[in-house]
Design a protein around this nucleic acid. Structure first.
Lengths: 193, 193
DNA sequence: TAGATCATGTAAGCTGTTACATGATTCT
DNA sequence: AGAATCATGTAACAGCTTACATGATCTA
């Protein structure tokens, strides 16, 4: 049991449908939890039967109807219990680093290409986190927001996410450059003269 | 199928038993893949029947016998094919960040305690990566090692791991400090005068 | 009208986790 | 003698991924 707490935490800042939650998981929550939409639909159903969230139907005329959920007091209690026991150490799974680990034994250009394309993805995520942070703090500057404003939790996790993607960007970029150099491959725009 | 490539990549730099591999996964490989010992024992058995690794029995007199494995040419081919298709985006699961996300709605001291204890763990991991890097580069300095030496893959992934843990340390520490401040709780050694 | 987005679900199969089990050897 | 480390495995269960299915509404 693991996904449930991430869902509860994500649902704390408002009423969302499964579909909306899937988008949120792709953005802000993806810094610390990964889930595909199908997991969310089934988890929401389970959480509702257990009384940790409550759902209500929203009739929409411009689009298909949807069911939105909010965390119940029992759901908050569950999070409280969750935070009271030591968290399991984080886990990470990154196929691209598996490739780099093996790079001395396999074709380097394939790995370099992937590093360069993932660097672009990382840069886009940094931008996205940046905009999310700006949106959260509104008119306040960061120091002021952190001192007083609410909610502070989502802001803090977003800061971690932005930093993680910045570091990804830098590592992907410098690793690609280094492997190119070692392989004697010219980088884009680089000349041998 | 995902763990298999991490196991193959980890086995590239020598002959290891399941037990030894479990230790390696706890250290260097844990930057990019997580696995518990039981997963490794069963994955090794599967990889051997598929001919991607080959094992041989080592008779030991001072300890129980063991079976060590090396990657076969078929295993290298498998890694080559793996690197030729775009890697799935990385996934991360971090319960401690789930707690921080929810911190506005639950007891802050519980979360702060966990942040502080995990900061210590992160600091220890930074040290460990530092020593691993020193060991890998031996007498060479980093620039020289990166330019010419082999294998470079494990060094590069280790650099990423060290940076990740450094960032963890800084975020855990500063987040704990901030939440203490907001909750009006004195930090260790801090006085209100 | 075709494709995109919104919205949710079932079912099968694969992967990962946890509990339990065993036994040798070394260290205190 | 008891604890720690070395070494490997089975089995049950929980969780995650993928394929497939459906249907509404909106945009080009």
């Amino acid at each position: 049991m693991a996904l449930r707490h991430a869902v509860l935490a994500a649902l704390l800042d408002g009423e969302y449908s499964g579909y909306q939650l899937a988008k949120i998981f792709d953005l802000s929550v993806s810094n610390f939890w990964h889930a595909v939409p199908q997991q969310l639909y089934s988890e929401l159903a389970k959480l509702e039967t257990e009384g940790l969230i409550s759902g209500r139907q929203i009739i929409q005329h411009d689009r298909p109807n949807k069911r939105v959920y909010t965390v119940t007091p029992a759901g908050i209690d569950e999070l409280e219990r969750f935070a009271a026991v030591p968290a399991k150490p984080g886990i990470i799974r990154e196929n691209l680093l598996v490739m780099v680990q093996a790079v001395d034994h396999i074709s380097a250009p394939a790995v370099i290409t992937q590093l360069e394309s993932r660097a672009l993805v990382a840069a886009a995520k940094v931008e996205l986190f940046e905009r999310t942070l700006q949106h959260l703090r509104g008119d306040l500057d960061e120091e002021e927001y952190l001192r007083n404003a609410s909610p502070v939790g989502p802001y803090l996790t977003c800061l971690r996410g932005r930093r993680f993607e910045q570091e990804n960007y830098e590592w992907f970029t410098s690793t690609a450059r280094l492997l190119r150099m070692r392989a004697g491959i010219q980088a884009e725009g680089e000349t041998s003269a």
